[in-house]
Simulated scan of single mutants.
Amino acid sequence: MPSSVIHHFSYDPDAKALKITFVSGIRYKYKNVPEEVFNMLKAAGSKGRYFNYFIKGKFKYNKMKHS
């Protein structure tokens, strides 16, 4: 999953929560994300571009603390 913007992402289908860790180390949890959006992110040739067009500004989120 090479991306110049996104380091890692995961999805919890029960909670409809998408967790994204950016290359900067900052982590966000996006709420009420349909599984289809997650599947399209997985399939996207450019994860960063998909994020900017279809996730950023579209879903409520929380900044996560470093673990």
Rank of each mutant, 00 (worst) to 15 (best):
residue 1 M to G: 03
residue 1 M to H: 05
residue 2 P to S: 07
residue 2 P to Q: 08
residue 2 P to M: 10
residue 3 S to C: 11
residue 3 S to Y: 11
residue 3 S to P: 13
residue 4 S to N: 09
residue 5 V to S: 05
residue 6 I to H: 00
residue 6 I to E: 02
residue 7 H to D: 09
residue 7 H to A: 15
residue 7 H to V: 04
residue 8 H to Y: 11
residue 9 F to P: 10
residue 9 F to W: 06
residue 9 F to C: 09
residue 10 S to R: 13
residue 10 S to W: 04
residue 10 S to F: 04
residue 11 Y to T: 10
residue 11 Y to N: 01
residue 11 Y to G: 05
residue 11 Y to E: 07
residue 12 D to R: 13
residue 13 P to G: 08
residue 13 P to N: 11
residue 13 P to A: 12
residue 14 D to H: 08
residue 14 D to I: 10
residue 14 D to E: 06
residue 14 D to M: 03
residue 15 A to G: 08
residue 15 A to D: 14
residue 16 K to T: 14
residue 17 A to K: 14
residue 18 L to S: 07
residue 18 L to C: 06
residue 18 L to W: 02
residue 18 L to G: 03
residue 19 K to A: 15
residue 19 K to Y: 15
residue 20 I to Q: 12
residue 20 I to K: 11
residue 21 T to S: 06
residue 22 F to K: 08
residue 22 F to R: 03
residue 22 F to Y: 05
residue 22 F to W: 12
residue 23 V to K: 02
residue 24 S to E: 12
residue 24 S to A: 09
residue 24 S to R: 11
residue 24 S to C: 12
residue 25 G to S: 02
residue 26 I to L: 12
residue 26 I to C: 10
residue 26 I to M: 05
residue 27 R to L: 03
residue 27 R to F: 00
residue 27 R to W: 00
residue 28 Y to A: 10
residue 28 Y to L: 15
residue 28 Y to K: 15
residue 28 Y to W: 10
residue 30 Y to M: 01
residue 30 Y to I: 03
residue 30 Y to G: 03
residue 30 Y to K: 04
residue 31 K to V: 03
residue 31 K to I: 08
residue 31 K to S: 02
residue 32 N to G: 05
residue 32 N to L: 08
residue 33 V to Y: 12
residue 33 V to I: 15
residue 33 V to W: 10
residue 33 V to C: 14
residue 34 P to H: 00
residue 35 E to R: 07
residue 35 E to H: 06
residue 37 V to F: 02
residue 37 V to A: 00
residue 37 V to C: 01
residue 37 V to P: 08
residue 38 F to L: 10
residue 38 F to K: 11
residue 38 F to S: 07
residue 38 F to E: 11
residue 38 F to P: 02
residue 38 F to A: 06
residue 39 N to D: 09
residue 39 N to E: 14
residue 40 M to G: 05
residue 41 L to C: 12
residue 42 K to G: 04
residue 43 A to H: 06
residue 43 A to G: 15
residue 44 A to W: 05
residue 45 G to N: 09
residue 45 G to D: 13
residue 46 S to R: 06
residue 46 S to H: 09
residue 48 G to Y: 07
residue 49 R to P: 00
residue 49 R to M: 07
residue 49 R to W: 00
residue 49 R to C: 05
residue 50 Y to N: 07
residue 50 Y to S: 06
residue 50 Y to Q: 06
residue 50 Y to E: 08
residue 51 F to W: 10
residue 51 F to P: 01
residue 51 F to D: 04
residue 51 F to A: 00
residue 52 N to W: 00
residue 53 Y to M: 12
residue 54 F to R: 05
residue 54 F to Q: 07
residue 54 F to D: 07
residue 54 F to L: 01
residue 55 I to W: 05
residue 55 I to V: 04
residue 55 I to Q: 04
residue 56 K to R: 10
residue 56 K to A: 05
residue 57 G to F: 03
residue 57 G to C: 04
residue 58 K to R: 13
residue 59 F to C: 01
residue 59 F to D: 08
residue 61 Y to K: 15
residue 62 N to H: 14
residue 62 N to R: 15
residue 63 K to N: 08
residue 63 K to V: 14
residue 64 M to Y: 04
residue 64 M to P: 08
residue 64 M to H: 09
residue 65 K to L: 08
residue 65 K to S: 15
residue 66 H to K: 15
residue 67 S to A: 12
residue 67 S to N: 14
residue 67 S to Q: 09
